[in-house]
Design a protein around this nucleic acid. Structure first.
Lengths: 345, 345
DNA sequence: GGACAAATATAGACCGTTCCATATTGAGGC
DNA sequence: GCCTCAATATGGAACGGTCTATATTTGTCC
């Protein structure tokens, strides 16, 4: 026996033909058993299953993907894993897809972009049946291209707002209103909003303004662009607190920016919530950390994920034409970062 | 324009044959152009590339995967996206894989497990050429099975420690020593360690003990199982601070547990770092948040990712037999959560 | 000018499935 | 006993690439 036989042999994986031969049936029948098709006799089914077990047969995904039109796989485009607000959304989405026999395939557009990879193309290239875009990513053109061949659903983002794609988001206007009203009801009169980017930023700003106007307050007394990061929330709040006309309450675009605001307050020797109340948005696990304990708008991400999954499944099953927009209700989670103005510690 | 044209037509993707026809060449030549093979004349190459562009042709991954042995795709198994320590690791890994023409395919074993999906199997099923396990996941058996057919590299974890798999981790023993020494050098004598789970937990504990013993201190004066979460760090620290023999310094298994410790200290009215110093591990972005400003051991995750990528590429190219273990050096990032004991604010 | 090698192009088998069209079998119904 | 229909089983053509073996063209050297 030649020694080259020893470890070099790559041990070809058994194929459906090997199984068929071993079971003494046609490969078609094996295929039917695998797909749990009806009209297969119990006796044959058993024989085939035994052969599969004995050979340790595993179907080849590429071959299957090639001959079937569908791959039962859905691409999920994430962006910036550093900000883990999407985790619950992903859970709802995965669970829903799973009920329809679909598997999610994740891609991280942030990292991909840094290393010069086009993540949407890579996903499509993997043969995904549909795409769920989670959160705002900078790949609009690629997403649009993808939408020409497969269904696309946007979850937790409104950009890019293109005709063929469903959108599932929380009700940003309502969420922003409730956050603002919370501060107003606590007695705050001088309230700032740290604005965020994109369509969502615009809507949250609108909600803030509406709530302020409803209460007869000036929404634009303080206005700062807070961006999405802790850094920018910090910088914006520093600016706000620099003058002697200071807000007593801040409603930030998201939790990260709100945490930046907390830091800025601490820097100025202001204590939260005694001297300054802060409200965030996303109700991420960051807000829940005791050390931070941030009042925050919960955007129902689990529900967003579930609905996005449903929309995608519908589009996969029937060719839905029109864009649909689903708003998930928000709720306010009150924690230790808000109190009436001037409250003693 | 008939409205039925809008979205209903599934528009069959052009194939290599369509391109060949359009360019007036054989499909073999198109294939050669796609693979950038030598011995193709410039004129023909140009014609083919034009046809590709005009038709918007995209090669079909399944077909390619079927006829080639390799898919140039590497599965990356993540666990618990809530704790985003792995982000930099992923960046190093993706970049390295990319240089070898490999694409990462992500899976989230935490969510998958919740919904009853076997993520490793799903990845293998997608036809990945190799697997990188990032962080500790509970899928040991499945990983072992996968290792029988494809190369597996563990990054940022030592479990499951099985013969055929390379391991890339930071030097936990050294990292734990440096964190402990830092506290000792600041003058702390009563130091607690919040223990973490697994092999890594054991090593960090060992490093802590060694550093304490070197300084002639009792390593087991305080001993708590801190777990991996903020919650468990909080609970453990509550217990430590309950008695009147209190530690003045705490070295936690990871940043999350350390943040739990910060919260517990605040609950007890102890100020950090004046009354209690806290050191974390991972140097995650949480530690960097100003509001938290946690001294933490940096485990060089970027380098871990890079090395894991290199190992995998090597295993893909040559059949490496033996297990290799690569230790990445750690460094201590000192921030505001540590100071000499009893320091005035 | 012919021989030979190198460069370039092509045909067609093959990868491992799915699934359609076509047997084959068995059970009733008349 | 024959015909029909349903239930089972099978052969073989896709699916869209890669790659080997072979054909054709071009260039070089005597």
């Amino acid at each position: 026996m030649p020694e080259s036989d020893a470890g070099a042999r790559p041990v070809r994986q058994p194929t459906i033909r090997d199984v068929a031969e071993r079971a003494g049936v046609s490969k078609s029948l094996v295929s039917l058993v695998l797909r749990e098709a009806p009209h297969v006799s119990d006796s044959r089914r058993r024989v085939v299953l035994e052969a599969i077990a004995e050979l340790g047969y595993r179907p080849n995904a590429h071959a299957r993907g090639l001959s079937r039109t569908r791959s039962d796989t859905v691409g999920v485009l994430l962006h910036d894993l550093r900000n883990p607000w999407f985790v619950e959304l992903l859970e709802g989405l995965s669970a829903t897809l799973h009920t329809a026999g679909l598997s999610p395939l994740l891609a991280d557009s942030y990292t991909d972009r840094r290393i010069g990879r086009r993540s949407v193309e890579a996903l499509v290239h993997q043969g995904i049946d549909g795409l769920v875009v989670v959160g705002t990513t900078p790949e609009s053109e690629a997403i649009q291209t993808a939408a020409e061949s497969i269904p696309v659903v946007l979850a937790g983002t409104r950009d890019p707002n293109l005709p063929g794609m469903d959108i599932v988001v929380d009700d940003d206007d309502a969420g922003a209103r409730s956050a603002t009203r919370h501060l107003i009801e606590l007695g705050h009169r001088h309230i700032a909003h740290l604005r965020g980017p994109g369509e969502i930023g615009t809507l949250r700003l609108a909600g803030f303004r509406a709530a302020m106007a409803d209460a007869g307050l000036d929404p634009d007394e303080f206005s700062e662009n807070g961006g999405m990061s802790e850094e920018s929330g910090y910088a914006a709040t520093r600016r706000l607190l620099a003058g002697d006309n200071r807000p007593t309450g801040i409603f930030a675009f998201n939790d990260l920016a709100a945490i930046g605001a907390l830091s800025a307050a601490a820097d100025q020797g202001l204590s939260v919530p005694a001297d300054l109340s802060v409200v965030g948005y996303d109700n991420s696990y960051l807000a829940r950390i005791r050390h931070i304990s941030l009042t925050s708008v919960d955007n129902g991400n689990l529900a967003v994920g579930v609905q996005a999954g449903k929309y995608l499944i519908e589009r996969l099953e029937a060719s839905v034409q029109l864009q649909r927009i689903h708003l998930v209700p928000t709720s306010l989670e009150v924690r230790g970062s808000t109190a009436p103005p001037g409250t003693a510690r």
